[in-house]
Design a protein around this nucleic acid. Structure first.
Lengths: 197, 197
DNA sequence: GCATGTGGCTAATGCAGTTAGCTTTCTGTT
DNA sequence: AACAGAAAGCTAACTGCATTAGCCACATGC
């Protein structure tokens, strides 16, 4: 019985590969053990159980998503920033649908503090984007919620195969993002000159 | 061994109750059998298995959602219709989170023809709403996708507990819906007078 | 009043996660 | 170099779930 040379990191990487190839629902200890060339209980030497493995994968995916979002903002301002964020997020989700799904908050039953921090970082990036658009502070929470709802709604419907019509989905996304930017800019303008009109 | 008097309908109703109380993930044959006061294999006399039971529940939930949406449109026109649809959908989802989740397309692996028809009906209602807003036919697919993405995105994030900030979620929703209506009206106006401006 | 079909049941199988406890291998100290 | 102990693998066993097979009893129809 030669040692397989596992480690918590390697187990998490294998789990990530499963999620990448077959989606979060396919993440089972059996699948990971098979990839590791190891019996299922052996995994418990490196990870506390399935929920812990899920938590590790989710943390990685949320961090990655936050990185993608932050990278899109880099060097851009005003509406360009939000548009770039939107496209970067969708591109990432389409390229790694399993990871995107694993980053959603309903996949892990009891989120750890680390996971909450990672999620907060992603939200912070979105907040920076709406701030760059001129949305005043007292509207930023609403604006961030609008951004998240819009982008997540579109991408999750698209990934779930919810768009049956043959019409170009890229066009629909551009349409949606344009409307979002417009609405947020208007909100900014509205509060920027509160009593003038 | 007195007969329990089950029927496919009754089994589906019990399944719906499980989904209502504990969410779609908690729907197991064991849970339904317990409610029915019956051994698990007995259920197979009335339903083909767990996937079939899920399909039945999903069909009911999608139909119900389409009804709610259609009911909101009743007697309303222009932007009022879409606003009413939005609030009716969110109200229904918050009142029956399990049913709303069960109505999503990723919950059933292989949707039946019936389920697709029910989904198409819901989409048709959304299309009627955007048409009432003056969105021209060649923009309606984009508009419907925007409506679905916006509403589903917001509601699913809210149900997943994704909104950590203490700020009023009702206000955020109104903000989002107002922006959506505005963007769709603008799209209608834009295509109504294509070359004038 | 019996024959039949239907609606229950128990038993058994397979697959998932998890725990316990054993053995082997690596490592680090003397 | 030898050995002690920790770390990493294993098998065995248990639980909960879905599913299938096959049995038995009730209810109905002739």
């Amino acid at each position: 019985m030669p040692r397989a040379g596992l480690s918590p990191q390697l187990v998490a990487d294998l789990a990530l590969a499963v999620v990448d190839e077959h989606g979060p629902d396919a993440l089972t200890l059996a699948a990971v053990a098979q990839r590791a060339g190891v019996a299922v209980p052996s995994l418990y030497k490196h990870v506390a159980g399935l929920p812990a493995l899920r938590a590790a994968v989710a943390l990685h995916c949320v961090d990655e998503l936050a990185d993608v979002m932050a990278g899109a903002l880099d060097g851009r301002s005003s509406s360009e920033a939000l548009v770039a964020l939107a496209h970067a997020l969708r591109r990432h989700a389409l390229a790694h649908p399993g990871r995107y799904a694993a980053a959603q908050s309903d996949w892990v039953r009891e989120p750890s503090a680390e996971l909450l921090v990672a999620g907060a970082r992603a939200v912070g990036v979105a907040r920076a984007a709406v701030a760059a658009l001129g949305v005043p502070p007292d509207r930023q929470v609403d604006a961030v919620r609008a951004v998240r709802a819009t982008l997540h709604g579109f991408v999750s419907l698209e990934l779930a195969g919810g768009f049956g019509m043959p019409d170009d989905v890229d066009v629909s996304f551009d349409f949606l993002v344009a409307g979002l930017v417009e609405a947020l800019v208007a909100a900014g303008a509205g509060t920027a000159r509160p009593v003038v009109g």
